[in-house]
Design a binder for these strands. Sequence first.
DNA 1: GAGCCGCAGATTGTCGACAGCGATACAGAA
DNA 2: TTCTGTATCGCTGTCGACAATCTGCGGCTC
Lengths: 253, 253
Amino acid sequence: MSVTSGHARQGSVLRVARPSTVDLIAAELRAAIFSGALPVGSALGEVETATQLGVSRSPFREAAQRLVQEGLLASVPGRGLRVSVIAPEHVPDLNEARIAIESQAVRRIAAAAPALDGLEAALAELERVSEHDDALAIGDADLAFHQLLVDTAGNRRLSHYMATLAIETRIASLSAPEGYAVRRTVSPTYRALLDALAAGDAAAAVAAITQQLDDATKRLTGESTDVEMIERELAPPSLQPIDPDRLGGDSAG
Amino acid sequence: MSVTSGHARQGSVLRVARPSTVDLIAAELRAAIFSGALPVGSALGEVETATQLGVSRSPFREAAQRLVQEGLLASVPGRGLRVSVIAPEHVPDLNEARIAIESQAVRRIAAAAPALDGLEAALAELERVSEHDDALAIGDADLAFHQLLVDTAGNRRLSHYMATLAIETRIASLSAPEGYAVRRTVSPTYRALLDALAAGDAAAAVAAITQQLDDATKRLTGESTDVEMIERELAPPSLQPIDPDRLGGDSAG
DNA sequence: GAGCCGCAGATTGTCGACAGCGATACAGAA
DNA sequence: TTCTGTATCGCTGTCGACAATCTGCGGCTC
């Protein structure tokens, strides 16, 4: 981030960007959807949810609009809020959006040739958790890799899109009629992707990420089931109040 | 749209999706930013803006969160809302996001080979308005073409992204230190793009859209000024009430 | 004369309350 | 027994009000 010439414009150095209450609530809701604490398709009573979060209805409703805009919550006038469902037939559209974002990120990385240490570490972590049977942890590591991939491109807008797409991908996985499941073995396309990026081979890198996402899509749409999967039941529904985060230092994510 | 197998799931045919008040307010705000009625960088007093829209602060604040999520409004805790500014140094990031979305749409169109009548008509309209000196109308036709381009790909998510990116592009144009300006002549890349799409040549189509967006970026970042431009002052700030039925006739601006 | 402190005004953030709408359960008629 | 009309309940949508915070201004001190 370059320091601009403005002196009275805005003190981005002095004035730390404090997260607003709405930011905290929205983050908590995203985390709850991501973890399955708020089950896919479930209704969110405003009074109930706001009470669990330790806030009033007003800031909760404002935060909910953030997630409605992202497509993570569905709002039907007069009938309330529901966690979005992404049925198998809608997975290809989600996949195409991810290809759009991630392939562009990959092109940028291949051209700029930044350090890939973080991505190597993320892949190592994915391979590490893949040795165990915690399906949710494997999914987390997978999406963390993809988020870091896009972050490496250095475009805040693409990173922002990817953050939402990651949650949508989780929603699609949780919406699967067969239940949440992940690959037991790490796809070789991850290794191929990093090798291509290290070599600056944009075409090969794009091919790797595209194949990887298309393969995942085929699994979710039921077109392909030739890979051993790990299934898992979900976490119990629970929400943490957001105000303790604000007052004390709670670094749990 | 395919009718799914659910019988008691939801009557998407019977139950028309009515827009909520928040939807209407958000749409009005987007239109006001797009038209310049809400100037770039200007502060939005909650009471003032909500009153102009004919609603209370609560639904306005909820709608504002929609635009904050989109990045069209910037919210600073305790200091209110401002229309976002996209300085020239941030235009390349915006451009890259557009390339990500639009190039993917172009790839999809080249592969699926849908009818291109609408796009031809949109290009004709762009050429028509380019004969006059209404810079804002030219910009409108330009962005309408790109929106239709992405819509033609048939991916709702990509269309949704493009809708926001179009407004952000307008914001970037309005943020230009030299004032809002557009090309006087239609870039030949439009014709090249449609020809490539008609021929199913994905590579050529991607090259055309990429060059087109990169050229526009160079103009906004000041790297290139070799094309004659048309400048224009902006529309006066005015907001229309979103619930005319509800309030009755108040046409004062 | 410049900088700091304190106060007043205005605005935002949050909450409780009320009205309108939809969902549900129940009673009555075919 | 089943369908329909109705009444009740709960929830959402909206509004006004209060408290906390920020901005701007004036006075004071160095």
